[in-house]
């Protein structure tokens, strides 16, 4: 059975669209469920301010929702894309875009649920710190969304950039690898950023006067948690924009696919680990604000060590791209 190029592109686009929306729905749903669960607990503790808690819950859930809205946008684009010059390369790019956005939305969706839930619970304990908690929740969950935004950027580039007449083999593997690298690496960073943001909302509710120190250490911790997803972005840019000479060997495309898988999976653990370190530091700055400098120092040292495996993964994937 011979398939026409247009048919192959349609198959890839529809598959990519399904993957993008299916996986993209996982994270936000879990995150929003967590927010709602904490909000219920908060209302049962302090029913008199149920209106404030309800409002805060909806705002938090709306931010957590954005990751899956990005996935919806990419899925709809893939369903209704018109393409000027059909080529098999475009099929690979569509599949890569779907994988990238689908995986990329998971971490941010789950992560953004934590600040939402903890701030609802915090409002029930400290109603007078409500506006500080809402502000801090918005900052924290906005930072959590960055890995999902990176994924959307890579997916949009894969969909819209005209890669001209690059050779089909091995460029197809570079596009799928680019999607996997960014999408998978975004999982850990999104989730880790959420852990830090959740702890900061809990901390502000406990000691509202420590708000400046808590927000500062949350932002530093989240920034370090984002690095694995930035490594993923870097590798996927290299895979998209490096020109690969044509090759009939099977090993060349597999090396590029392997590079994407390596950086993608390799970014998950360090992203979560850095987030855990930041969570611990933020929680204890709120309890022991005089020693925030020591806590910041040990958080950064711990995160640097936890980052090392992401750096190994990046080295191996760069070797797979440039050396072998």
């Amino acid at each position: 059975m011979e398939l026409e190029v247009e048919t192959v592109i349609k198959i890839a686009a529809y598959t990519g669209s399904g993957i993008a929306m299916g996986l993209g729905a996982v994270g936000a749903a879990i995150g929003e469920g967590y927010t709602a669960a904490r909000a219920n607990l908060a209302v049962s503790r302090n029913p008199k301010i149920s209106g404030d808690i309800f409002k805060n819950m909806l705002v938090g859930q709306a931010v957590a929702e954005s990751a899956s809205i990005f996935a919806l946008v990419i899925a709809i684009l893939l369903l209704f894309m018109d393409f000027a010059s059909p080529s098999l390369l475009k099929a690979a790019a569509f599949l890569g875009a779907g994988l990238c956005m689908g995986f990329g939305a998971i971490g941010s969706g789950v992560g953004s649920g934590y600040p939402g839930g903890e701030s609802c619970f915090g409002i029930s304990q400290q109603p007078q710190a409500g506006s500080q908690l809402t502000t801090n929740m918005l900052i924290g969950s906005a930072v959590c969304q960055t890995p999902a935004i990176f994924s959307m950027v890579v997916a949009l580039m894969l969909i819209f950039i005209d890669f001209g007449n690059a050779p089909l083999t091995p460029t197809w593997a570079a596009f799928v690898g680019a999607g996997l690298s960014m999408g998978l690496a975004a999982i850990g960073s999104g989730y880790g950023g959420g852990l830090a943001a959740g702890a900061s909302c809990e901390g502000i509710a406990r000691t509202p006067q420590a708000v400046t120190s808590v927000t500062t250490i949350m932002l530093v911790g989240q920034a370090v948690s984002q690095t694995p997803s930035i490594f993923g972005l870097l590798v996927s840019f290299i895979l998209m924009f490096k020109t690969f000479p044509e090759s009939s060997m099977l090993a060349t495309p597999m090396a590029l696919l392997g590079a994407g898988l390596c950086m993608g999976f390799g970014g998950i653990g360090p992203g979560i680990g850095n987030g855990m370190a930041a969570e611990g530091a933020v929680r204890w700055v709120a309890r022991n604000v005089e020693h925030s400098n020591e806590l910041m120092r040990i958080m950064l040292v711990g995160q640097a060590v936890s980052q090392s495996t992401a750096i190994y993964a990046m080295v191996v994937s760069l070797v797979l791209i440039f050396v072998v």
């Binding site: 390799g266 987030g275 495996t309 992401a310 994937s317």
Partner: peptide
Amino acid sequence: GLAMGLGAIGPGVGEG
């Protein structure tokens, strides 16, 4: 790719 990628998950989480 899989060895380094999957192998990086555990240490990253554990060290965190």
